[in-house]
Design a protein around this nucleic acid. Structure first.
Lengths: 140, 140
DNA sequence: AAGTAATAAGATTGTATTTATCCTATATAA
DNA sequence: TTATATAGGATAAATACAATCTTATTACTT
């Protein structure tokens, strides 16, 4: 329903991975330290990203995480949708929500417009855009 | 953090009141029936709207609720902010949120831009706009 | 003055969601 | 075969959301 912390973590994770986009696997622990995120929760987040095909993972020694696609092709909206599923800023915008006022409801219509405006904004920026302007230097 | 059902209820309530904007007090029960909302919860919502000055209430017989301002001057954003307080579509946008990446954080920046786009959309429409196009006829 | 009708306000409850953490399993390289 | 890293399930703690209950307060009506 909303943009959770996990979405933010996912963005930061992918942002971090974008800095290394030359095929090498980065350990989740390193990302967690770098971006100050709880490791275990980050691992859960990575699992989701892996299932949706945004990252590739490798277990065992020399294992870790890497982008599965070019950072130019992933928008922030892509990341958010990967984590949250279909967005609905208000319950009445959810697919399975039954409302007596449908389908001709001005409230619904306006909320939907607001949501679209938000998602459009998130769809403007790719990971590549972000990493280009990011102030956080690569430390490790 | 998000646009709750209570926000939607508030919008619907004010929308309903806008249909009668000639100074008469409408009972919350009538609004609840008209818009299919839980009465007690609606009363809570009205209390908030009253505190923020959007509606006036009167107790006792012949009492009820009415708009405190003209429907042309209330935007949907006004209503949402009245109910939710300062909006933050992501925890990192909250005022009291401490983040190591501040103040130079691209993620924060983009989320903020998305939020602004959303609020701008909600700020475009007033209650008067809504009631003009509303399909729900006044029944009582 | 008493009774009735309406909202105000505080307390409480139930549920769902969010944000983790723990533990065991599985894969992989050295 | 051992050390290392993610996978996945279970669970827990915290928070938020939605709703209800109860008692007060206000105000008209008779």
């Amino acid at each position: 329903m909303q943009l959770t912390r996990q979405s933010e973590y996912a963005i930061r994770t992918l942002l971090e991975l974008s800095k290394y986009s030359d095929g090498e696997f980065i350990q989740s622990r390193a990302i967690a330290i770098q971006q100050d995120l709880p490791v275990q929760f980050l691992n859960k987040t990575v699992q989701i990203l892996a299932r949706t095909g945004l990252v590739e993972t490798r277990r065992g020694m020399q294992g870790g995480i890497r982008l599965a696609v070019k950072p130019e092709t992933i928008t922030i909206a892509d990341v958010v949708v990967a984590i949250e599923g279909k967005i609905a800023i208000n319950p009445c915008l959810a697919d399975d929500y039954h409302c007596v006022n449908r389908p001709n409801c001005r409230v619904h219509e306006i909320l939907e417009r607001a949501q679209s405006a938000m998602l459009a904004e998130l769809d403007k920026e790719t990971l590549a855009d972000l990493v280009r302007d990011d102030n956080n230097e690569r430390v490790i």
